[in-house]
Amino acid sequence: MIWVSWRQQRAETIVAALILVLVALVLLPSGLHMASAYDHDGLAACVGAHPSPACSEAIGSFTARFDRIGNLIAWFTLVPGIIGVLLAAPFVLQLEHGTYRLDWTQSVSPRRWIVTKLGLAAGAALVASLLLTGIVTWWRGPLINVQGRMENSVYDSVGTVPLGYTLFALGLALAVGVVWRRAAPAVLVGFGAYFALRVFFDLSLRTRLFPPHSLTWRASGADPPSLHHAWLISERPSDRLGHPVYPHVTRAQLEQCANGARVSKDCLLTNFHPAFMHAVYEPASRFWTMQLLETGLFAGVGVVLIAFAGWWTHRRAA
């Protein structure tokens, strides 16, 4: 049964492997370049919480140089979704074409057939997500050393969460597919739902599950160590109690200080001379707690959806 399952999902598995090869080919040159720049600039010595002024400058220029490509590569967070729905296709195709009947009229029980096929699809999804995470983590290594890994754009592609995302996408496409019995719409709807739920999770649910810390500190002093490598959700001038000062500051004025997603603190300080700063953030120390819980959540829902697909097929397919 394992050979048969493998043969039936071979084409999709090869496509998934090609996607990984493509990702590796895209990342390899810039990754090598970034790693050598990191070594050349001697940044390894600068990664502490309180870098020297020279280090700050080196980190600043390194970040400015690679931040853009880093943000581009953040889109690779879609790859687990693509691989997940892709690996759901062979199972749904068999329902669509009726070829499951050919298999079910050999001598294996429908239960064994379903378990083996779904198991193999989930296994391939796991291997693919581990490889993907490995490649992206290697590539991001230097950037993570200087910037941390808490920002959504980094956090989503490292650690264990890609594994959860892949299973989740696989489960979504399978669940839609076994009910609808059409592979192409199942893959598209599955991916659409995956994307929407991921955006919802990133923008809204993550900070609700893990209520961010907030912190007010004297602006003239050094940055508090707890902000080191943290995910800064907001950072603004404030009074001693953390209430925003300069309520008359318009969004447009703030945007003058904005550089991409993050607001330049130096710019704020020069323009507004606040006495205190206030930040809302997720500390770097929470990384693994958040990762494991989120992985469990996505993988758990994914496994439930996969089990549902198996149950539904067993009860309803024939």
Partner: peptide
């Protein structure tokens, strides 16, 4: 089955191997 559905991506050899494995 009606219209004898087979795995279209399989070769004849694969189809026999499927029978043997299952």
């Amino acid at each position: 089955a009606q219209d004898h559905p087979l795995h279209r991506r399989f070769t004849v050899r694969d189809t026999l191997k499927l029978g043997q494995k299952l």
